[in-house]
Computed example of a mutant assay.
Amino acid sequence: MRSTAHRSLIAGTIFALATTLPAGVAHAAIDPSPDFQQAPLPDQFTILKVGSRGIEVHNVKKRLRDLGFTPGNLSFTYDSALRMTVWAFQKANGLRPVDRIDLPTWQALLRPRRIRPLVGYGGPERTEIDLRRRLLTVWKGGKPVLVTHISTGARRSYCEKGHCGFADTPVGDYWVGARVPGWSTGILGSMFYSVYFNGGIAVHGSTLVPRFPASHGCVRVPLHNAVPIYRLLQPGDPVYVRRPEVRAERRPEARPERRRRIPRARPPEAPRDSPGHSSPSHSSGSSAGRKNHR
């Protein structure tokens, strides 16, 4: 009973946040406030997954949109666009990307992590590509306005249709160059609303954006994010590609134990032959010696 009530409270608070936040709010740590209108609470916490339908799905989409994670249309169906948007949100919040909205994801929706820049000198208008987490973030006015899941270079050699090379998305500082609207077809496949930033490497929409690096070097984004990114990225805008190291959890260093000083044992006194000292006295001395060793 207590677990069900706790789940209902979390889900209900998310619904309240989703229905009261203004559109366009950048991704930031948002604390729940009693000023939010209370939405109807579900009977129990619901795990949402691809194919789920209902008001919960609709409110999750609104919440993600307001946090800068564009889920496509605000329908009542958990579709493929929401699936990849949830991946992006989970990765940005330190969660493993899964095909469902479970309790950790509900909790992250309630208290999301703040998006932090990959570079400190990037400027207010820029795009950052995180190769490790496979996330692309567009910054405008110093705020993250669009965060999306991506698939980048597979980092392997390939030979396709007589064209050979090494599939990689190089780390570096670049600038937006040519922009090609609509579908375009090259030697290695089709691209949707391409934005070139490093020679023949572009950010473009694709029908295949898996959870692992799979491209020939380009940055694939879900189709529903291709047009918004195309409109946001203008010629000359900086693009920063990084592969951040995994931050190890910092644990307090263990203090070395102080070495205890063990008193040296005194050797038992030799028996005295003088009158008044008998063997019991020598036995007592041995006992004292053993005591000092403890």
Rank of each mutant, 00 (worst) to 15 (best):
D168T: 00
V209G: 03
G177Y: 02
G182D: 15
T185R: 04
Y174K: 09
P210T: 07
G177V: 05
H204W: 09
H216K: 01
Y174Q: 00
A178Y: 04
G217P: 00
P210K: 08
G153T: 06
G199C: 11
H163V: 15
N198Q: 14
R155D: 14
S151M: 11
V176K: 07
I150S: 00
T207W: 12
Y193K: 07
H216R: 04
G186W: 12
A202H: 07
E160M: 08
F197K: 01
A214L: 04
L208V: 10
H149I: 03
S157N: 11
T148Q: 12
F212N: 05
R156P: 11
S194D: 03
S184N: 13
S206I: 00
R179L: 11
C218A: 12
F166V: 05
H163G: 06
C164Q: 07
D173G: 08
R155W: 08
P181I: 06
S206A: 15
A154E: 14
H163W: 12
V209E: 13
S184T: 15
K161W: 01
V171Q: 12
M191D: 12
G153E: 02
G162N: 03
S190T: 11
G182R: 07
L188T: 10
L208E: 14
Y193M: 01
S157A: 14
V145T: 14
W175S: 14
P210R: 02
H149T: 09
S190F: 03
T148C: 09
R155F: 11
G199K: 06
S184V: 12
Y174S: 00
P144A: 09
H149F: 00
K161Y: 13
T207N: 14
G177N: 14
A154Q: 04
V203T: 03
S157L: 02
G153M: 10
G177W: 03
L208F: 14
W183A: 00
V180F: 10
F166G: 03
D168M: 01
S157V: 08
G177A: 14
G172L: 04
S194W: 10
T185L: 07
W175Q: 15
T185G: 06
G162R: 08
A214C: 09
L208H: 07
A154V: 05
N198T: 07
M191L: 15
A178D: 08
R156L: 12
V176A: 05
G199P: 11
A154I: 03
V145F: 07
G172H: 07
A214F: 06
W175N: 13
G186A: 06
Y174L: 04
P213D: 05
V145L: 14
Y158W: 11
Y193L: 10
T185P: 10
F212A: 05
G172Y: 03
W183L: 07
G200C: 05
T152M: 03
H216D: 02
G162H: 06
C159R: 05
D173R: 13
S206Y: 09
R155Y: 13
A214S: 15
D173T: 12
R211Y: 04
P181T: 01
R156S: 13
T207S: 13
F197M: 06
G182C: 04
V176D: 05
F192H: 11
G186L: 06
W175C: 11
T148R: 06
G153L: 00
I150A: 11
